[in-house]
Computed example of a mutant assay.
Amino acid sequence: MRNLIKIFVLITGLMAFAPKQVPGDDFCGIKNTAFKEGESVTLKVFYNALGMYVGAGEATFVTTLERFNGKTVYHCVGDGKSYSFFDNFFRVRDRYETYIDTSTMLPVKFIRNVDEGGHKIYNNVTFNQGAGTAVSTNGIFKTPNCIQDVVSSIYYARNINFSKYNPGDKIPFDMFLDDEVYHLYIRYLGKENVKTRYGKFRAIKFKPLLIKGTMFEGGEKMTAWVSDDPNHLLLRVESPISVGTVKIDMYGYKNLRYPLTSLQSVRGQ
């Protein structure tokens, strides 16, 4: 069960929407209308290798409002951990942080601090959006216009106006992760109802392009759903991995900006 929470973070990052919208739009000028400070969201990771899904870990994302280098920023923190049973095989304690300029919705700093089975990685990245550079713990790297990190892209994504897209449309975006720039996209699939372990929702569905690696097959094998309401809250992700499959479900939330009107029924009620 290596990298359970890393899988979660990669899924949520790689499924993120676009800092590039329909041609001609000012995709650097998007404003936040989807979330607010004080928001907290919990997601759980389920793993299936023998025909049955078992809880393997969870992650919580919390948003606060702070000052950073003279700017007002959203400080968004994702903490992930494996459950005690899986700690016996591979203990995961991961922390991802992003500082997002509230006026542009672009990241100014990203911190990755992970401990996975005793293997520790720390990377502190400062973005200079104007100069097109990312200064990380490991060096200086060129970046394209309006680059996002793996966490900021999730929050940016929640402000995309889906009414501009038709089912089948591709939405490209650029993301900086592990000192590399990835040119990715999602394919918007439309709207449908989805049943999760939390409840039944009206949802927006899409598939992201994934980069082939040790855990994921390349292509559009992953499917994700977000709430069909102004919050655009991540509800579920499903994907095959190298051994088995994973599901990630939203399990709890606090201080959403809007009522979660896409929720049709709570499981068990």
Rank of each mutant, 00 (worst) to 15 (best):
M1Q: 04
R2D: 00
L10Q: 14
L10D: 15
L14P: 00
M15K: 05
V22G: 05
V22W: 00
P23S: 11
C28V: 15
G29T: 11
K31W: 01
F35G: 05
E37I: 00
G38R: 11
E39W: 07
S40A: 09
Y47K: 12
Y47E: 02
L50Q: 14
G51I: 00
G55Y: 12
G55F: 14
G57T: 13
A59D: 14
T60H: 06
F61I: 15
V62C: 00
T63F: 14
E66C: 13
F68S: 11
F68D: 11
N69G: 09
N69V: 00
G70I: 01
G70K: 08
T72G: 09
V73G: 05
Y74C: 08
H75F: 05
C76W: 01
G78H: 09
D79I: 13
D79R: 10
S82Q: 15
S84K: 02
F85Q: 08
D87V: 12
D87E: 13
R93A: 13
Y96L: 15
T102M: 14
T102A: 08
P107K: 02
F110W: 03
D115W: 09
G117E: 09
H119F: 06
I121F: 13
V125C: 03
T126C: 02
Q129C: 02
G132I: 05
G132A: 13
T133G: 03
S136W: 11
G139S: 08
I140L: 10
I140Q: 06
K142D: 11
P144K: 10
C146Y: 01
I147S: 06
I147A: 07
Q148V: 01
D149T: 01
S153R: 01
A157C: 05
R158K: 06
R158Q: 04
I160E: 11
F162Y: 11
F162M: 12
K164I: 01
K170Y: 15
M175V: 15
F176L: 06
L177K: 07
D178Q: 09
D179K: 07
E180F: 01
Y182C: 03
I186L: 02
R187G: 00
K191M: 10
N193K: 09
V194E: 03
R197Q: 05
Y198M: 08
K207A: 14
P208W: 13
F216W: 10
E217A: 13
G219C: 00
W225C: 02
S227I: 06
D229R: 02
R236A: 07
P240E: 01
I241D: 12
D249F: 01
D249M: 04
D249N: 10
M250F: 05
K254P: 02
N255I: 14
L256C: 06
Y258L: 01
Y258N: 07
L260V: 05
S262W: 06
L263R: 06
Q264R: 02
